[in-house]
């Protein structure tokens, strides 16, 4: 018995401790599967190439289809630190790269003054820097580079995209008072965008590009089976079929993503549902539909038709 255990340990160890730039596509796929991320082969190939070439991966596509999740899963699968930079309007370099810790600098100055010495270069040392994600990503000092997730970059303004470009070119941060910081091994960079704004060509140039669309029914079933334990197979099929009908046949403002499918499946599971019935669907629809104008498009009749439609398609 024990040697089986040792063998399993060895295999698991081989997967997790390996240099992420040297894994094969199959290993990458199984590593991601092992942490519950189900990816298309095309995505695996792109990710694999981005690791091999050391280029950032730019993921664009529908919200809720696993862009952010990919970076998280990657860090988990390879046991790397995840450094996340969530972008928003008005994001500037002081919250993305670094900031001087004025408060502590001030305290230090007070202390130095009290002891009679002159505050000088001492207060401009690394100790007084608040490291923001981008700086942290290049000062990890570890042999295992972290995963840097730059999330929803389309929300930040173009000016910030400029900073980012500079950063991605060299994986280096320069602080005028201290000099340049650069890590031996560049971080694994994943950039996501929900396409609310067209990204600049410069940024696109730097990255390998992948468009994340809604998964195929097959793939979505797999995701459900991994994410929602104890869900009946037949019900899962109905769920996937219905969500597909919603995505394809209704002109929704916000189409339900995988995240919504999972939420809904969980809700149905907790209600102990056996099959989809219009009434039940109506009650739980808020899991799938997040926009008030979309709710209007799915009134009683339309909903009933959609349920029947999807039932016909899945059977």
């Amino acid at each position: 018995m024990w040697y089986v255990f040792v063998w399993v340990l060895a295999v698991v160890g081989a997967v997790f401790e390996v240099d992420e730039r040297a894994v094969s596509r199959e290993m990458l796929k199984s590593a991601l599967n092992s942490v519950g991320y189900i990816a298309d082969d095309a995505l695996i190939t792109t990710l694999y190439l981005s690791l091999r070439l050391g280029k950032p991966l730019l993921l664009e596509g529908e919200p809720g289809c696993g862009k952010t999740e990919l970076a998280k899963s990657l860090s988990e699968a390879f046991n790397r630190e995840l450094i996340r930079l969530q972008c928003y309007e008005g994001l500037d370099s002081s919250s993305a790269i670094y900031e001087w810790d004025y408060l502590r600098q001030l305290l230090k100055i007070r202390m130095l003054e009290a002891s009679g010495s002159i505050p000088d270069s001492e207060i401009f040392s690394e100790r007084f820097i608040l490291k923001r994600p981008l700086l942290r990503a290049v000062t990890h000092g570890d042999s295992k580079p972290p995963v840097l997730l730059i999330d929803e970059v389309d929300r930040a303004d173009e000016e910030f995209e400029g900073f980012l470009l500079e950063f991605l070119a060299e994986f280096q941060v320069t602080i005028p008072e201290l000099g340049s910081f650069k890590s031996k091994k560049p971080p694994i960079v994943v950039i996501t965008s929900n396409q609310t704004r067209e990204l600049g060509d410069g940024l696109r140039r730097r990255c390998l590009y992948y468009y994340v669309s809604f998964p195929t029914p097959q793939r979505e079933l797999e995701i459900l089976s991994v994410k929602v334990k104890g869900l009946d197979e037949a019900l899962a099929r109905q769920i996937v079929g219905f969500v597909r009908v919603l995505r394809e046949e209704f002109d929704l403002v916000k189409k339900p993503g995988v995240a919504e499918t999972i939420d809904w499946a969980r809700a149905l599971l907790s209600l102990d549902a056996k099959t989809l019935e219009p009434q039940l669907v109506g009650q739980t629809l808020s899991c799938l539909i997040k926009d008030s104008s979309d709710t209007l498009k799915l009134d009683g009749d339309a909903l009933k038709r959609a349920v029947e439609n999807s039932a016909a398609k899945t059977s």
Binding site: L49, L58, R204, Y211
Partner: peptide, 22 residues
């Protein structure tokens, strides 16, 4: 880095490096 006789992989390799817009 890919097996060029694997058509899917070959296409994806070209696509992710040459196509930058959906």
């Amino acid at each position: 880095y890919i097996d060029i006789l694997d058509r899917e992989a070959f296409r994806q390799a070209l696509m992710c490096t040459l196509v930058k817009k959906a």
